[in-house]
Simulated scan of single mutants.
Amino acid sequence: MDEYGPPRCPHDQIVMRDVPDAWECPHCGHQIEIEPAPMPAVFDGPDIEDYRRRRGV
């Protein structure tokens, strides 16, 4: 598999397309399953607006 960009099909060397949860060869239908990436935690810190000086306050 190339270091950058989408992978190529091992059977016919065509660039694979991304489909939900996999890469798929548009020619022969070969798929490479991929695991979903873990989502980062939701930010629960102070907002930048909390540090700005507000007019009239």
Results as ranks from 00 to 15, higher is better:
residue 25 C to K: 04
residue 49 E to T: 07
residue 52 R to L: 10
residue 22 A to L: 07
residue 25 C to M: 01
residue 30 H to R: 08
residue 29 G to R: 04
residue 56 G to Q: 05
residue 38 P to F: 01
residue 37 A to G: 01
residue 30 H to C: 02
residue 54 R to M: 07
residue 14 I to T: 11
residue 32 I to H: 05
residue 20 P to R: 10
residue 33 E to H: 10
residue 40 P to W: 03
residue 3 E to S: 13
residue 14 I to G: 00
residue 30 H to S: 01
residue 45 G to M: 13
residue 3 E to V: 09
residue 34 I to W: 00
residue 30 H to Y: 15
residue 57 V to G: 09
residue 29 G to C: 05
residue 25 C to W: 02
residue 52 R to E: 02
residue 52 R to S: 01
residue 37 A to Q: 12
residue 53 R to I: 11
residue 10 P to C: 14
residue 10 P to S: 13
residue 21 D to I: 04
residue 41 A to D: 12
residue 4 Y to T: 13
residue 28 C to K: 06
residue 21 D to N: 13
residue 2 D to V: 11
residue 18 D to A: 09
residue 40 P to E: 03
residue 38 P to M: 04
residue 19 V to H: 10
residue 37 A to P: 00
residue 5 G to K: 12
residue 41 A to F: 07
residue 50 D to Q: 07
residue 30 H to K: 06
residue 38 P to I: 03
residue 57 V to R: 07
residue 42 V to E: 13
residue 38 P to Y: 00
residue 56 G to Y: 00
residue 36 P to R: 13
residue 28 C to P: 05
residue 56 G to H: 08
residue 3 E to W: 06
residue 24 E to T: 07
residue 4 Y to I: 15
residue 46 P to L: 13
residue 8 R to Y: 15
residue 12 D to K: 10
residue 32 I to R: 10
residue 6 P to F: 13
residue 15 V to W: 02
residue 15 V to H: 00
residue 57 V to I: 03
residue 6 P to C: 13
residue 42 V to Y: 05
residue 23 W to A: 08
residue 37 A to D: 02
residue 3 E to G: 10
residue 52 R to H: 04
residue 22 A to H: 10
residue 37 A to N: 06
residue 4 Y to M: 11
residue 36 P to F: 06
residue 31 Q to H: 02
residue 44 D to P: 02
residue 37 A to F: 02
residue 5 G to R: 11
residue 14 I to F: 03
residue 11 H to S: 10
residue 52 R to F: 11
residue 4 Y to W: 07
residue 44 D to K: 15
residue 56 G to K: 08
residue 52 R to I: 11
